[in-house]
């Protein structure tokens, strides 16, 4: 069963093509490692798949239930971690699992704390919780471990090992390389 695929995917900003002729197919348990220098288009690929950017050419398909977490994705500073998960559960029509998820990601003490008071690492954990809350079939993760401490990285590793869907992981961290079953270097 194909969970995500791209055909001849391309995106340009102004006159510059950031990605071109990208093709892939992801099935359950595939972890596609997207690597490349800064500006090579890793985040752009994930944003296109998440529906945040439209491609300039080509097409893609992705399972309706997907999770997205990125370094530059912001959370609502006025809402608590629990309120974030309650809100996303309501709009996604799924159980909120707030206690379970925040415990799993080591945020149980900050559950009623506003996200505006969070450190970068705590925000990264909250974004991961939001990404996996509805038990997605595809996970789109952009530099997920960049802001995480050792415990956070371990939680992420556990999450990826247990995850049964397909993962698209954009990273520059060598440590993340061990999760990959497929690799794609963008230049």
């Amino acid at each position: 069963m194909v969970l995500a695929q791209a055909q001849n995917l391309g995106r340009k900003f102004g006159d510059r093509w950031v990605i071109r002729r990208l093709e892939f197919e992801l099935r359950p348990r595939d972890v596609l490692l997207l690597t490349g220098n800064n500006g090579s288009g890793k985040s752009t690929v994930l944003k296109i798949l998440a529906g945040l950017l439209s491609p300039s050419e080509g097409s893609f398909q992705i399972a309706q239930r997907f999770g997205y977490s990125a370094l530059d994705l912001a959370v609502y500073p006025a809402l608590t971690a629990r309120e974030h998960l309650l809100f996303s559960a309501k709009v996604r029509n799924c159980p909120d699992r707030a206690d379970e998820l925040l415990r799993q990601l080591g945020l149980q003490r900050a559950i009623d704390q506003r996200a505006g008071e969070f450190s970068t690492g705590m925000r990264a954990r909250l974004k991961l919780a939001l990404a996996i809350q509805h038990k997605p079939d595809v996970l789109l993760l952009d530099e997920p471990s960049a802001a995480l401490d050792e415990a956070g990285q371990e939680a992420l590793a556990n999450l990826l090992e247990e995850f049964e869907g397909a993962v698209l992981l954009a990273t520059n961290e060598k440590e993340d390389g061990r999760f990959g079953t497929l690799g794609l270097h963008l230049s």
């Binding site: 001849n8 990605i19 071109r20 002729r21 990208l22 093709e23 892939f24 596609l32 490692l33 990959g180 079953t181 497929l182 690799g183 794609l184 963008l186």
Partner: peptide, 9 residues
């Protein structure tokens, strides 16, 4: 080849 495709790791 023009097309960018992933490789198995």
């Amino acid at each position: 080849p023009g097309v960018v495709r992933p490789v198995s790791l």
